[in-house]
């Protein structure tokens, strides 16, 4: 038996499963495994209540419009209050693209119609016609050893940050939150949100380790230290991303 373990909640995996977001779960499991930390992945979907004390990390990905509309209703009406409480308590979340948008106040469609979202994050999103698609590079100050994040974005929403959240990173290449203010993603307490697919975490092991540290620190005490672990293959992928940039 391992001394440490983490329970990961995968929100709506049967509906939000686009652009490789599943790889983020694999990244948690893989890099935790390198430290002999056990992981258990729990799928939570439509109609099931969110029991916030059950999970150390919550992952919330993106999907197609039809699926996201279904999820949004369930999120707001079934899981809403518990998720908001969990966020305020400092539980660890990773939210990507549609999951990121749905954590905000609202999503405004192109025709001006405002769709209420969860309001757990002080952000809002406006839908636009043209999509931001392509490889991305960001600079993230949270990651001390190697601040570069590589990703792939594919979104038509433009997200704007309120005063109580800060951006996850600065855009080096690509569009990020809205293509205007040079910001990418958002951080609020222990919630990390980003537009990066790709998957985000496999190519950014520093970020994986950062999130694991947050979750383990919360569970086993602030002084928990995550041992360094091999990242040879992650570095190969990062080197290729760096050199293939046009």
């Amino acid at each position: 038996m391992s001394k440490y373990s983490l329970r990961i909640c995968h929100l709506y995996p049967d509906l939000l499963n686009l652009y490789g977001d599943r790889g983020n779960i694999l990244a948690f499991t893989f890099r935790a495994g390198l430290r002999d930390i056990e992981t258990e992945v729990v799928a939570l979907s439509m109609g099931q209540p969110f029991e916030k004390d059950q999970y150390d990390i919550v992952f919330f990905g993106g999907g197609q419009d039809a699926e996201q509309n279904m999820v949004r209703r369930d999120l707001v009406s079934v899981k809403g209050p518990a998720v908001r409480e969990a966020v305020e308590e400092g539980r660890v979340f990773l939210c990507i693209c549609g999951g990121y948008q749905m954590m905000g106040h609202y999503y405004q469609e192109q025709n001006g119609n405002k769709i209420d979202c969860l309001g757990a994050l002080d952000i809002y999103t406006e839908g636009k016609k043209d999509r931001f698609i392509g490889n991305t590079e960001y600079h993230c100050d949270l990651l001390v050893n190697d601040p570069v994040i590589y990703g792939f974005e594919n979104h038509s929403g433009r997200t704007y940050l309120g005063d109580s959240v800060r951006p996850l990173a600065k855009v080096v290449s690509g569009k990020g939150n809205n293509g205007e203010d040079g910001t990418e993603g958002a951080v609020y307490k222990n919630v990390i949100a980003s537009y990066s697919h790709g998957s985000l975490l496999p190519k950014n092991p520093e970020l994986t380790d950062h999130i694991l540290t947050l979750a383990l620190g919360r569970k086993y005490g602030e002084d928990f230290v995550l041992e360094p672990a091999d990242k040879t293959f992650e570095e190969i992928a990062r080197k290729e991303m760096k050199s293939c940039k046009k």
């Binding site: 790889g23 694999l26 990244a27 893989f30 496999p202 190519k203 293959f233 992650e234 190969i236 992928a237 080197k239 290729e240 991303m241 293939c244």
Partner: peptide, 18 residues
Amino acid sequence: GERYADMLLRLVYSGAGT
């Protein structure tokens, strides 16, 4: 392939054993 590194990481993360 041109994106061999992505596929390599995919295989490694699948637990295939390096």
